[in-house]
Structure formats: C-alpha cells, structure tokens
Write a protein that binds this DNA or RNA. Sequence first.
DNA 1: TGCCTGGCTGAATCTCTCC
DNA 2: AGGAGAGATTCAGCCAGGC
Lengths: 373, 373
Amino acid sequence: MGLAPSVQRLPTTFPLDEILVGDCIASMNSLPPSSVDCVFADPPYNLQLGDAGLLRPDQSRVDAVDDDWDKFATFEAYDAFTRAWLTAARRVMKPNATLWVIGSYHNIFRVGSALQDLGFWILNDIVWRKANPMPNFRGKRFTNAHETLIWASRSAESKGYTFHYDALKGGNEDLQMRSDWFIPLCTGEERLKGADGQKVHPTQKPEALLARTLLSATNPGDVVLDPFFGTGTTGAVARRLGRRFIGCERDTVYADAARRRIDAVVPLSTAALTIATPKRAEPRIPFLSVLEAGHLRAGETLTDDRRRFKATVRPDGNLSVGPVQGSIHKVGALVQGLPACNGWTFWHAERGGRLVVIDDFRSAYRSANAAAE
Amino acid sequence: MGLAPSVQRLPTTFPLDEILVGDCIASMNSLPPSSVDCVFADPPYNLQLGDAGLLRPDQSRVDAVDDDWDKFATFEAYDAFTRAWLTAARRVMKPNATLWVIGSYHNIFRVGSALQDLGFWILNDIVWRKANPMPNFRGKRFTNAHETLIWASRSAESKGYTFHYDALKGGNEDLQMRSDWFIPLCTGEERLKGADGQKVHPTQKPEALLARTLLSATNPGDVVLDPFFGTGTTGAVARRLGRRFIGCERDTVYADAARRRIDAVVPLSTAALTIATPKRAEPRIPFLSVLEAGHLRAGETLTDDRRRFKATVRPDGNLSVGPVQGSIHKVGALVQGLPACNGWTFWHAERGGRLVVIDDFRSAYRSANAAAE
DNA sequence: TGCCTGGCTGAATCTCTCC
DNA sequence: AGGAGAGATTCAGCCAGGC
C-alpha cells in the first residue's frame, strides 16, 4: 500500500512498437521524459469502481462504494486517477506533442477539467457522431449518439504542434475539417472476437477514428503512446500508417489479442504515406530570386487580379508605386490601404494577354530548384 | 449549516414572466425553494482570448467577445462562480425539474464537473452542430463547429422528469431524437440589433435551439428559469410555446431589449405546438468518409473513364499524381489542365475488371447513412 | 420581379522566423 | 525577450444593390 514496487522493470532500450504489460502510470514513468510525439488515451469511463477494478495512484484497489455519503469520494477517486495518468503522460510528451482523450458524459468533464488544471491547452473538442448508435430502449433520454474527444497541446505556449490542415481539407471536399466527425461504430469484420464468438473488448474503437486523429496530428515515423491500449486499435492504425507506437495494458488477455492483431497489419507503402509539404514548411523564396531567374523583368508592371492597382518591378526585387518603394507585401498592403497583404497572391503579371499570379512563378522556381534546396 | 436562514425575503407574488434585474444568485435566492420546473443557463464561457485580436484573410477584424462579464482571473475563480450559481439554481428546482447548460470547450468541462459534484445527474450531453460556424482563419485547428449542452436532473433519484420522447420522435422522421442537433446560428431577422445596427448581445442563441429543449423537457404552463437571461431568447421561446419564464439579468440594456422582444411574441395555439424539422440540402459527403467506410483502399489507383489519367488514393482522402497531391476535384482538374473538375464523376476504380465511377460509392454511402446525416 | 454579385458576419482560447 | 516583417489564411447565410 503506497509503497513503490521493490522491483521495477526498466526497458533497456526505448520500447518502440511494444506493449508494456502492467500499470500504465508505472510504465509511463519508466520512459524517458520528452520522448513521444502524441498520446492517444481511451481511459475507463466507468465510475462503478468495483467492476472496473480502478486503481488509486498508489496502486491500491478502490473498493466499491454505494453509500450516498461517499458519492463525492467516488468522483474524487476518479479525479485522482485521472490526474495521475495525465501527469505521467505529460512528462513523456515532447514540448510540441499533443494529447487526445476520448470519453462520454460520464467522465469527459472530469478529464477535461483535470487536463486544464495540469496546464494542457485545449485545441479542439471533437465530437465523434456515431452512424449507428445503440438506441435508447426505454425512451427516457435522447439517443446517446456521440462521444467526445479532447485534443490538447502540452501547454498554451506549445505553438509548434503538428496539424495537417491541407491534407484534412483535401479529403473533405476542399473545406476545412470541422469538429464533428461522422464515423460508424466498430462492428463486423473489424471487431475482434474470441474463440467463443464474443467480442474481446467491450469498447473497441473504430480504426477510422484513430486514423483521422493520427493523420491529422502526427507525421510518419512519429511515436504514439496509448496508456489504455486495450486490444490495440491505436497500434494497428499506427502500424498501418507508418507511425510507431508504445502501448500500456494491464490485462494480458487484451495485450495478447492486441499483439496478434498488430502483427497481422500490413503497413502502407512509404510512397503512399508521404505527405504534401505544408505551405508554411516550404522554403522561403526571395522575390529577387524569382526575378533573377527570369520569370519577371525589371521595369515591368504588375497589377491585382482586377487591374485596379499597378506597381513597377524594380531591379532589386522591390516594387514601386510613384515615389514609394517596398517589398511586394508592403506595397500590396499600401495600395489597398490594408495593414498587411500577401504579395505573392495579390500581384499578377500579364502573359499572353492573361493575368498570371506571381505565386505561379514562385512555384516554378521552387520545382526547378527542388533538388538544390 | 442545515439551519434555515433566519430572514428570507420572499416575493409577495411569484415573479412569473418577469425579468429580475440584478445578480442572478441573489435573485434566485429570493425565490421559494422547489418552485421551477426547468432551468436553462447560458453562463459566461470564460473564453480567454488573446489581446492581439484576430484578423480574417481579408484583414477585417473579428468582432470577438471581449466583454468584462466573460473575464475571470483563474479557473479557480470561474469554478467558484459556477458552483455558486448552480447551487442557487438547484435550490429552486422542483425534485423532478431538469437543468440545461450550454457551453464550449473553454468552460463546459468545468461546468460538467461542478454539477456532478453538486449532485446533479447527467441525462445527456447534447451537441449543437452549427450549420454556419465561423471558420478557423489561420488553419491551425479544426473548425470549431459545435457547442455542448448538458441536460441533467436534480439528482440521481429524480426519475420523474419530463421528456417528450414520442413528440420528438414524431418530429424526427419517426426516429429517436439523437444527441447531435443540427441548427443554424442566430443571424438575420432573428438577431436583435440596436439603433446603431449593431448586435445588441454578442452571443444571442437561436430560438430553434431553445425550442427543442423546452419542447422536449417541459410541459405547457411549466416555469422555466434562466439565470443568464441576456436578450431573452428563453423568455421569447417560452412565451411562444405556452411556457412561463423567470429571467435574471444584470445588464439593464439587455434586460430592456429582452422585455420589448418578449412582449412582441405571439403565443402559439396549443394545436400548433409541433416541432418543425428544418429542411436541408443533401449533405456533402467527404471523400475521406467514403474511403473510411471501405469503398476504396488507400494506395489503390483511380483512372478516368478512358484510362487516360491515373492517380493514387492517399490515406487522408487526397489523391496524388507524382509529387502533386490534392482533393479528388483539384487533381482531376490538374491532370486535364482544366480550371475545375467534379472528381466524383471523373474518377473511376476497377471492380471485377470493370470501371466503377466513385460517385457510385458516394451514393452507397449516402443511402447507408441516410438516417443520421 | 427576379437573378446575380459582392459585402458583411458569427462565443475564436487562430503564425513564424529572424534580428 | 521583444519587435518587425514575411507571408499564410475563410464557410455559410443573409442582405443590399445593380441589372
């Protein structure tokens, strides 16, 4: 009770693509700090502590409590458990790593409050809208047709987190991906069944849900930690998508099923996984270089797409309007009377009677010099 | 503790259909206990916006919620405020009354935890999916396209709460009403404007949202209390639907606007109290969803109907041709050298030696999920 | 009268690098 | 650490005005 285990199994090497069998907090504490890129957690929802076998942070077992006076203690125990695993997870997260947690109204408010208290910074809450939820049989409530995910960075100062905005937008009819995701439950072939034909795990999540989280918030090769690995959906999807995983699972039946499941996954080819470089990550090209490469001529006139404004290209890579000179951005802002302007997409040159945005010249320059960059 | 207050200011008459101007906690404490059938609360969200302000891509400024009433120094201060008003509200609730609270990820986890701690019993969390949310202008997160409502009874023992299961089902194509509601923002005619043409209140809620809550969880003649009355959406809908209201509002400008608004409302006849289901255009289906549903595989090759062009399906729902990636529409346009292209009718997959247009997969997806989308 | 276009707006925790 | 500058970034709905 309350004492640390006398023997602690520390991995000699970083346990990539492995399942650590045992208490998730001890397992996470055995990892070096700042070592994972992403955490996906599907913690116990259930507040009926006797059934869930919930453990306190000190590893003692919480006894079932059904007295009214102990209701507060029940939430308190769940909160302590939540703070403990969130704290352990936060330690192993790299500064720009992000955390995903999924839950329902039974527990998600506790989890959300706890992670805010610990300094996590919520980026979005995501609603998983179930295509085929279980109906409410007694007609006493609305059909509980969704679960909630919280996506959070390690702290408010963590601005460099991974988010594949363009990839998500491209897969969504060229519209920004919203915070409400419509995805079917995990059923049929995908659902793991035991020899008895019964489902192995009561709350197996659909791979599509994990895939969307990992595609949006991790890069190929990134390490994803799942403290409540269960039957390994996170690991299976990570392997398929070329990510690495570390799973923690206490139950050997689940862990064994997860291991077999993941070993059978065929990863997608590296070629299928290479992602388009996000705009912000592309190398900066000076306007002067594009000019020097001959895409434009010093002295020629640029206009906006509706030919309302004009500017002249100077040999030094500035623009001028009358006596005023400045960068393509400064001058673009100036003529419009706006505080800022992206000159690359604002200014156009005439080519064969048609207006061509100068960003096209930059693209051409980039592809011509891709090898050298 | 446990003693009745020595002096209780009881209103000489119960303030039905009135707005109590002042602090909501004092106002609620002036009401007799166990006197209202329902509480609807839209408390401050504690948004914690940056000082810099947010610009749209066209450099116009977003009119953010920067009112003093939304500012709290710490989470602790917000939690104390939340516990205080929830406690006051719970006292005036009849044993079988229910509480609705609306919030966003900034505050809803605090509110949910607090009300659980105080003994409320959560019946559902409801997601208000916004038809027309504000986009994420910087491309750094998912579009924040929903808000969350919590529906709770006064305690776990309150089994006799009102829920009009059949009425809601009848208004929902004879399907059980789900926990995700698709409703537009409050704009246009419905949005209250001042003499200056500016919105009177920064966060006025749509009447459709209130109507659905009151129709589902109250009876005609029931008393609905709103501690954060604002410009009186709760009162206006209550009056229209034949319910009674009590509003608390600190700001006299809001309270005056609410009074005028509610006085202009014409109550519906009893027979007319049915739920209008909003008509919608066919929902847009993301290619990613069709992929996730298993109609296509990541890595497989698509072609046009004459096999002139090829593209590879990416796991994120984009297509790629060589190094270029983009949506099915963008890549379709690119390979043809056209300004635009409908990817759904352009691209085909090989199935059993024959080409199948991917629009067929979309149709199959649509009919499989018609009920929920 | 009707159609089309352009402008405006909504509870938002909304950049990154270099000097 | 703070400031300056490059340059990346938006969707649906309503309304007014022009044709």
